[in-house]
């Protein structure tokens, strides 16, 4: 039986496939990057259709926003044309076809899409759905699982982001990036200054974007959202400011001397919450120890702190990545 959701799903997945094939065939890297932005946006719509609203939120802000800008920054530093290959790589095609066929064979025995009896819906998931409301007092199950039940995972992932930012800074953050502003500004920046409509529009939008980031951060317990999304949206607001107005002015507002330590501070808040629960006599990241009489209140406090740490790290990492890529002069 085809429901409305399934129909939308079929159409969107087909669109996604077409976009991916276009990405494979086009040699102009600029167009490929734009297509990857479209691809992310379509994926975000699919995630909404599949009830994964938090993931959709993240994909829309990360994939279509930050990722595209980083790719464009790299294109500006390298080249925008892919060289035509001299020969068709039949070996690669063969490997891909064989692997694909094996994977296809693997899907035959899988339970159908949307089957409630499929093994992925295990007793663990049932427990999250039935008990998380009382245990943590947070209605958004994704948030409570992310920050409390699987808090170790999320701490590891925050650390990965932290490490990636450090590695990018080691690779690109040398003297060539941050030193004295370039005296003759590039033509594109100057032409942007003559654009009253764009600047006025951006001025109207930046404030609400930053405000929305805070809403997402602190409303993440009740609706879709949380530290990851909020961090990315905040960084997107700052990046919009830097793109439309002036890179140097944006960097003066969010100085590397401030943002770089804040990357570490977020991870410290996360791990520090875990250490604090140890001092309260609980397990590492066992927030119930914060309030022995009201374990749910303790959980709420713990989730709040942890999400705050994630938000601080993610927003500063994204800003740092942007400033590092787009501040580097072309060699």
């Amino acid at each position: 039986m085809i429901t409305m959701v399934t129909l939308i799903d079929l159409v969107l997945f087909t669109l996604l496939g077409i976009t991916a094939i276009a990405m494979l065939r086009i040699r102009d890297l600029f167009a490929v990057v734009m297509l990857s932005g479209i691809y992310s946006l379509v994926s975000a719509v699919i995630f909404t259709d599949l009830d994964a609203v938090d993931v959709a939120f993240t994909e829309a802000s990360v994939g279509a926003g930050i990722s595209t800008i980083l790719m464009l920054g790299t294109l500006a530093l390298t080249s925008t044309k892919e060289k035509t290959p001299r020969r068709q790589s039949w070996g690669a095609l063969l490997i891909v076809l064989v692997t694909g066929a094996a994977l296809m064979y693997g899907t035959v025995d899988m339970p159908a899409f949307g089957d409630a009896a499929s093994p992925i819906n295990s007793p663990v998931t049932d427990r999250y759905i039935t008990a998380s409301g009382e245990e943590t007092g947070v209605p958004n199950i994704v948030t409570s699982v992310l920050a409390s039940y699987r808090g170790y995972d999320t701490m590891g992932e925050t650390t990965v982001i932290f490490t990636a930012a450090i590695a990018v800074l080691i690779l690109l953050g040398s003297a060539r990036t941050t030193d004295a502003p370039v005296t003759p500004r590039p033509a594109t920046t100057r032409s942007l200054e003559l654009r009253p409509i764009l600047r006025a529009g951006a001025k109207l939008l930046i404030g609400p974007i930053l405000l929305f980031a805070f809403y997402v951060q602190f409303h993440g317990d009740f609706g879709p959202g949380g530290g990851f999304q909020a961090g990315v949206i905040f960084a997107a607001g700052v990046i919009l400011y830097a793109l439309i107005f002036d890179m140097d002015r944006a960097r003066a507002l969010f100085r590397p001397a401030v943002t770089r330590p804040l990357i570490a501070l977020g991870v410290l808040i996360y791990a520090g919450t875990g250490i604090a629960t140890l001092f309260f006599g609980g397990n590492f990241l066992g927030y119930s120890a914060f309030n022995p009489h009201h374990p749910a209140h303790g959980q709420e406090l713990g989730i709040f702190l942890v999400e705050l740490g994630v938000g601080i790290t993610v927003s500063n990492v994204m800003m740092t990545l942007f400033f590092t890529f787009c501040g580097r002069r072309r060699p």
């Binding site: 654009r195 409509i197 764009l198 529009g201 109207l204 939008l205």
Partner: peptide, 9 residues
Amino acid sequence: FTGPIATHA
């Protein structure tokens, strides 16, 4: 706000 501004830009 965003649609027309983006087209204009």
